[in-house]
């Protein structure tokens, strides 16, 4: 099953890179979303994929049955999703303010810090 996720990660990364190379910062933002998803999937899959057996300990037992999914990457990805969302929200507001102040979404036109000659 892992090659399946590997292909998804590659596709998401390719789309993300293409979007981040665009001049429109809104596209850059979309690229950011895609690349977070790619990273999350990669972390998740690197702990190996186990179909349909969540890491739960049944009542009456002290340990989970053998063959449950790897709990550690799941915890990591949970954290990563939330932090990625925080980053996204901040970046979105930044784009919004940038448009309000500069009147453009074209990163080539955003030249206050490095003015044109």
């Amino acid at each position: 099953m892992e090659p399946l996720v590997a292909i998804m990660v590659g596709a998401l990364t390719a789309g993300a890179v293409y979007l981040m190379l665009a001049r429109n910062v809104l596209r850059f933002l979309f690229g950011l979303i895609l690349i977070s998803n790619a990273a999350n999937l990669l972390i998740f899959a690197s702990g190996r994929l186990t179909p349909e057996s969540p890491p739960l300990v049944p009542y009456g037992a002290d340990v989970p049955p053998p063959g449950v999914a790897n709990a550690l990457p799941q915890a990591l990805v949970l954290t990563a999703i939330v932090i990625g969302f925080g980053l996204f929200a901040f970046a979105l507001v930044l784009v919004y303010r940038g448009y309000q102040n500069l009147g453009t979404l074209d990163s080539d036109e955003m030249r206050i810090a490095e003015p044109k000659e």
Binding site: E2, G10, T13, L42
Partner: peptide, 30 residues
């Protein structure tokens, strides 16, 4: 550029998933 990066990321991911996995931390939590 983006397609080649995507392809290489796929290959790297396959490599990563082909290496043996150290499950000691997961086992501790379990």
């Amino acid at each position: 550029l983006s397609l080649s990066i995507g392809a290489m990321v796929t290959l790297v991911a396959l490599h990563v998933m082909a290496t043996p996995l150290d499950l000691r931390i997961t086992e501790y939590f379990e």
